[in-house]
């Protein structure tokens, strides 16, 4: 299996797409909705950007298309579902660790917390 480190750093869009898939398979529109919500409406993925990223993620084996198909009665049969691969999950974890280290570095530099800048998770 490929070394997850070689895919880092991820771009914000790729990171958010992988995060959206981290708790199960989803179709493109659902991914977009989750990313939009997670970023406070700051990142709205258009069809070209989303499926361009999905194509590259599939090519790099970070995600695969799921066999799951919706019931045509309740949803559009053209919807395609995607899910994380083991490699994709490892890459996502590695990127998350990298970001945590960056934040820790910023804290050591007193850019956060001590200087009055509160993070969402701060008490």
């Amino acid at each position: 299996m490929s070394d997850p480190e070689k895919y880092l750093p991820l771009t914000p869009a790729v990171f958010q797409i992988l995060m959206a898939l981290s708790d199960g398979e989803k179709h493109g529109y659902a991914i977009m909705r989750i990313v939009k919500e997670a970023t406070g409406n700051r990142m709205v993925l258009g069809p070209g950007t989303l499926y361009g990223a999905i194509k590259r993620l599939q090519r790099d084996d970070l995600i695969i298309e799921s066999d799951c198909r919706p019931d045509p009665v309740i949803d559009d049969a053209r919807r395609r579902y995607f899910e994380l691969t083991d490699l994709g999950r490892q890459v996502l974890v590695a990127e998350s660790k990298r970001l945590v280290e960056l934040v820790a570095y910023a804290r050591r530099k007193k850019l956060l917390g001590a200087e009055g800048v509160q993070l969402p998770g701060d008490a």
């Binding site: 529109y29 977009m32 258009g46 069809p47 989303l50 499926y51 053209r78 919807r79």
Partner: peptide, 9 residues
């Protein structure tokens, strides 16, 4: 899928 995405938007 892209066209469907545009429709959803």
């Amino acid at each position: 899928a892209m066209l469907l995405h545009a429709r959803d938007l």
